[in-house]
Design a protein around this nucleic acid. Structure first.
Length: 818
DNA sequence: TCCCTACCGTGATG
DNA sequence: GTACATCACGGTAGGGA
């Protein structure tokens, strides 16, 4: 049969000793299709330079005889070809050694102990990656496919019969087709339980949301409620019902939030307890749980399980406003919608008339997850198409893996043989290296400035890598004609002029980033901003990747050289800006802030063009914006200007605050609000007048205990198991208190506490820690001197005001009006 | 016991 | 599994006076 087809999810199976890819996807009639296909598997043996033809011939004959039988299957070398390829940019002769089963390539490589062979590569990619490279059947692209329909045949042990798909096709031909939009069928889900520890409590309800479908399955509460609430008799039936709905709706994506770490493992544990087979897969298989160091992953065959939290974490968190990645905050930021309020209670404490609200709460969570998925769908597609790996992996991988996938899937254009993953020892060696010098940060002179412009290098590190051709494969041992050099790692490092594959590929990511940024300029919304930033992140991660110990294309020299070149470029730009009679007041990594010194915006724009025309390669500055005022403060200790701490206001009165306590979540809300307000007043007015009034008022209110504890809560994240802390800080004490109350805590838990008054005179801060709901009076002195004062002190100091006098009230006379 | 500083730890910037 | 280095700053640990 013939149809069009877009691949969504991939896995593979062995049949008669061979590997077969199983690809689940859809056609444009929304029929679900499973494509079965195989491909040649091989590894590459790179030959030593200058091996003679006769020797190679003999070698090929020897290799052809290799057989392996020790893993319950027979694998042999099926054919050997001699190819001219590149390895790390250099031309090499390599033998392409074809074998029966991908999993045996490693063992075959182990038998290639011949003196003519220099290196063995290309057998550590994984079958699916290898398959996608070989057959070029890329997720979310469209293909016209031809093949034999085997839905009802006994082929592959009757595989087609057990698969719950519309068509099962053994692929014969495929050709790329114009891409079209694919609207997936999505089912989001969320569970509520009594116990947070996996499987230790009962599942009280499961909510499901899909297109025109909302359902809460529960065995709790009273029967008559809303249409979408379905009562079952017990937990076992609830799980059965969940299975039925997933099967009936049969979505392309089953989406949860932290569902890799909670919902799905929980359902699995409870299903096991009730001896229910959790056959969610299209082939009736159970979810496969893969253990990770942190949380594992949960994979369902044919229905792609997505944990949105994971994707948001890697792709967007760095550029988000939200302080935590809780469903509530993330929904607020991207949907303008939040969770319904329902304080957690054990089910035994929930009254009859409260269940309705609990159901609504649970259902609303699934709605949020559903809406978030729809919002991020374009990004998920874009990421997946760029990385060319199955969407299951792309949504879970970190940035370094994404960069590496992108590289691996683009090697063929360069006839490049893939480099191997580093060994355990190599990783250890790389990790032990001392850090190299990074970015340049300008030490600002504290002050309140007027009329400021800010320039940014577009994808600074990325364009540096591209411009100066910095990578593992372009690193030279000694200088060559036209090679470029830089001082880094305490020596002179050289890179060839001939463009390497890594820099060339990076060019494409930068192009994409530019495109998304343009789109963002046309119409600004949270998701567009996130997308643009995600590709910015990816471009920057390419720099991080080359210095990342786990990377195949790790190169300390390339990393250090990138930072060195970037420093050189920005310092030169600063000099040029100063020479043009502007005055640079601050700079960090890739941005430069400078005073207009009376010049017009038009002059600045013109000057920017001139600057760019003199810039090497694809290095380019862009205008970040004009600002009416800007404030830089001193460090708390000493008089020198603090780096990474400043606030700007543009002509429209919009604030841009960086590094200040206002943007740090480990300061109490009050301190942050007060600082934010003071910055606003100072930047708007250019003087201290309104701020002083305001601070005075706040100080009085603190002294009069007019604030709620909720304004004074300090939030700190737990970053390791409590026992591992050497320094017992307030947040460790708070965490211990929470543990005593049996509140489950772990890596990443947000610890909330406030500082209460103590009779003891010299008590440590940690001895005064109280949990949010613990009764107590807040410590006036602490909040004045350790929260509010530090938050405004340095700002007022710039305006020559000593805030200490406001607080103790002794020297108020010197303040004139007070 | 007081005082100082090194170090731990978190969370920012880019 | 896991992109990088550069900063600020509160709080404690721990030694010396």
């Amino acid at each position: 049969m013939q149809t069009d087809f877009t691949p969504i999810d991939y896995d593979y199976f062995d049949f008669n000793g061979r590997n077969y890819a199983r690809i689940i996807g859809r056609n444009s009639n929304r029929k679900r299709i499973c494509v079965i296909d195989t491909c040649d598997v091989y590894l590459l043996a790179i030959l030593k330079h200058g091996a003679n033809e006769e020797a190679i011939k003999k070698l090929i004959d020897k290799i052809k005889k290799i057989k392996i039988e020790d893993k319950g299957r027979k694998t042999k070398v099926e054919k050997v070809e001699l190819h001219s390829k590149n390895f790390l940019g250099k031309p090499v002769k390599a033998l392409k050694i074809f074998a029966t089963n991908y999993k045996d390539l490693h063992d075959i490589a182990g038998k290639l102990d011949f003196s003519e062979i220099e290196k063995r590569r290309g057998y550590d990619l994984g079958f699916i990656t290898h398959y996608i490279i070989e057959k070029k059947i890329i997720p979310f692209n469209w293909y016209e496919i031809n093949g034999e329909e085997i839905s009802a045949s006994n082929e592959f042990g009757g595989l087609g019969k057990v698969l719950d798909v519309d068509f099962c096709i053994k692929l014969e031909k495929h050709a790329p087709k114009n891409n079209q939009e694919f609207k997936p069928k999505v089912l989001s889900y969320d569970i509520e339980t009594d116990e947070f520890r996996i499987g230790e409590g009962e599942i009280l309800m499961i909510s499901l949301v899909s297109d025109n479908f909302k359902k809460v399955i529960t065995w709790k509460g009273k029967k008559e409620r809303f249409d979408c609430i379905e009562h079952v008799k017990d937990e076992a039936e609830l799980i059965e019902r969940f299975l039925e709905y997933v099967k009936k709706i049969s979505p392309d994506f089953l989406v949860g939030y932290f569902s890799d770490g909670f919902d799905l493992p929980y359902i699995k544990a409870r299903a096991e307890k009730h001896k229910i087979k959790l056959s969610l897969g299209l082939d009736e298989s159970q979810p496969k749980f893969h253990r990770g160091v942190g949380i594992g992953t949960a994979k369902i065959f044919g229905i792609t399980h997505i944990d949105l939290l994971k994707f948001i974490q890697t792709a967007y968190s760095q550029y988000m406003q939200s302080e935590t990645l809780s469903l509530n905050e993330v929904s607020k930021e991207f949907l303008g919608n939040e969770k319904k309020a329902f304080p957690f209670k054990h089910s035994s404490n929930i009254k009859d008339d409260e269940w309705g609200r609990y159901f609504e709460y649970c259902l609303h969570d699934s709605t949020l997850v559903y809406d978030l998925f729809q919002k991020f769908w374009p990004d998920i597609v874009e990421f997946t198409k760029t990385m060319q790996e199955p969407v299951f992996d792309v949504t879970r991988n970190g940035m370094s893996k994404n960069v590496e996938d992108f590289v691996i899937h683009n090697l063929e254009k360069f006839s490049e043989i893939p480099e191997k993953r580093p060994t355990y020892d190599e990783i250890g060696e790389r990790r032990r290296k001392p850090p190299f010098e990074g970015a340049f940060v300008f030490e600002p002179t504290p002050g309140l400035y007027q009329d400021i412009a800010v320039f940014d290098f577009t994808s600074s590190y990325g364009s540096t890598i591209v411009t100066f051709n910095l990578s593992k494969s372009t690193l030279l041992e000694k200088p060559e004609k036209d090679s470029c050099s830089i001082e880094a790692l305490g020596k002179k490092i050289f890179f060839s002029k001939k463009l390497g594959f890594f820099p060339e590929m990076l060019k494409e990511i930068i192009k994409k980033r530019k495109q998304f940024k343009e789109e963002l300029k046309k119409e600004d919304d949270n998701v567009k901003r996130a997308r643009s930033n995600a590709f910015k992140l990816l471009a920057n991660a390419s720099y991080g990747y080359q210095s990342f110990f786990g990377g195949r294309y790790y190169s300390e020299e390339a990393g250090a050289a990138t930072a060195a070149f970037a420093r050189k470029e920005i310092k030169e730009a600063i000099e040029k800006i100063n020479k043009a009679s502007y005055k640079v007041i601050y700079s960090d990594t890739d941005s430069i802030a400078f005073l207009l010194n009376g010049k017009s915006k038009a002059e600045v724009t013109e000057f920017l063009k001139e600057l760019n025309s003199g810039m090497p390669g694809i290095m380019e500055l862009e205008l970040e914006g004009f600002f009416k005022r800007g404030l830089w403060v001193t460090k708390r200790s000493g008089d020198i200007g603090a780096k990474k701490k400043y606030a700007l206001i543009d002509e429209k009165g919009r604030l841009k605050i960086r590094g200040f306590e206002t943007v740090r979540r480990d300061w109490c809300k009050l301190a942050r609000q007060v600082q934010n307000q003071v910055l606003k007043y100072v930047l708007e007015d250019g003087n201290e007048k309104r701020s002083l009034e305001y601070i005075k008022e706040v100080v009085k209110k603190i002294k009069d205990r007019k604030y709620e504890i909720s304004d004074l809560i300090v939030k700190t994240q737990l970053k390791k198991p409590i026992s591992e802390y050497k320094a017992i800080t307030p947040h460790v004490i708070a965490a211990k208190k929470m543990l005593e109350r049996k509140i489950p805590l772990g890596f990443g838990s947000l610890i909330e506490y406030y500082i209460s008054e103590s009779k003891e005179k010299r008590a440590l801060v940690r001895d005064r820690v109280k949990l949010v709901d613990e009764k107590g009076e807040y410590d006036i002195k602490y909040y004045l001197e350790s929260q509010i004062l530090p938050a405004v002190e340095n700002i007022m100091q710039v305006l020559k005001i000593d805030v200490n006098e406001l607080i103790d009230g002794k020297k108020q006379k010197t303040l004139g009006e007070f």
